[in-house]
Simulated assay, not measured.
Amino acid sequence: MGLKFESGMLRSYFIAGTQDIKDPTKTLQEVAKQAMEAGITAFQYREKGPGSLSGEKRDQLAADLRDMCADYEIPFIVDDDVDLAIKTKADGVHVGQKDERVGKVIDQVDSTMFVGLSCDTKEQVDIANQTAGISYIGSGPVFPTGSKADADPVIGVNGLATLVKESKLPVVAIGGITEENIVELPKTGVSGVSVISMIAQSDDVFRTVQVMNETFKK
């Protein structure tokens, strides 16, 4: 049994795959390790899109990152790939509305790991509220984002606050979050932020993670 879910895990939540590391002198392992050193509270492995790995290379990288998360005692979460999550004994799996049906995923992992679900409308949140087995929801994009080719329409800070109010589960914000605009988010009631490029392309990972943790103090 992996780490049990706590809402504090959502404070500074880093999502990344090899495709998100744009600096050719750095590897995903190096950036992830730096982020863990700096104090991120969760890591999600999301290997998707142009330049991403598959097969054995992906499985090996997932296993390395899984070990790293265990060393730093933070949850290792796999995006959308239940088989990979089970294979790596992940702590959690995150599912989008366009991915496998969340009910099926909950059955498959059968309480061996926690499940997160992306919700960006009131209707989706209402369904999540009534679905046993979901631990948290991810909502966004709050701001325009360049990290996801298939990003949904921007919901804005007010849209996010509405969803938080509607949700019975803790909510993590996602989408276009920067060191400048993050200050707008605590007032919405979210438990924290999940980011891709804010950390993956940061010129100072320690400063960036510090900003996230300071913005959402324990």
Rank of each mutant, 00 (worst) to 15 (best):
Q124G: 15
F76I: 03
E180K: 01
L117Q: 14
I137R: 03
T27D: 07
T178V: 05
Q97I: 13
L163V: 02
V195F: 01
I15C: 01
K122N: 04
A132P: 09
S147C: 15
Q108Y: 02
I40L: 09
N158V: 01
S54I: 10
G96I: 09
A200D: 02
Q60H: 12
G51W: 09
V164K: 00
Q130I: 06
G8V: 10
Q34I: 02
S54N: 13
V142W: 08
D120M: 09
E184F: 00
R207E: 12
S52P: 02
D107S: 15
Q29S: 13
R58E: 14
I199S: 04
K217V: 09
L169Y: 11
G17R: 07
E30T: 05
I177K: 00
I40M: 10
A62I: 08
G159V: 00
V205R: 01
K4L: 13
P24Q: 03
G140C: 10
P170C: 13
L185R: 00
S197W: 01
M212Q: 03
E56P: 03
H94A: 03
D107Q: 15
A42T: 11
V195A: 02
F114Q: 12
A63G: 09
G92Q: 03
A42S: 13
G8F: 05
G96S: 11
R101W: 04
I106D: 12
P75Y: 10
T88A: 11
N213F: 05
G138T: 04
D83Q: 05
V31M: 01
D99M: 07
T178G: 01
N158F: 01
L61D: 05
T121D: 05
S135K: 08
V93T: 07
E179G: 02
M198H: 06
V209C: 06
Q130R: 14
K57H: 06
P170D: 13
M198Y: 02
E214A: 03
E37Q: 15
D91S: 12
E184Q: 08
Q130H: 12
P75H: 11
S52H: 12
S197Y: 01
P153C: 12
E47T: 11
T188G: 07
N181C: 00
T162P: 00
V193P: 00
T208P: 02
K89W: 04
K89N: 14
D110L: 06
C69G: 05
P186Q: 12
D150N: 14
G2S: 15
D23I: 07
D71C: 12
Y72R: 07
D152A: 15
M1G: 14
I182S: 00
P50I: 11
F76V: 03
P75R: 11
G116F: 09
A62G: 11
D71S: 14
Q29H: 10
V109W: 04
G140F: 03
D67A: 15
I40F: 07
V193D: 00
D150C: 10
A42R: 08
V142C: 13
A35T: 09
K165R: 12
D107T: 14
G176Q: 01
S202V: 02
A35D: 08
V205K: 01
I21N: 05
A90N: 04
R11T: 07
G146C: 05
K104W: 06
A42Y: 05
V193T: 09
D110N: 15
D64Q: 15
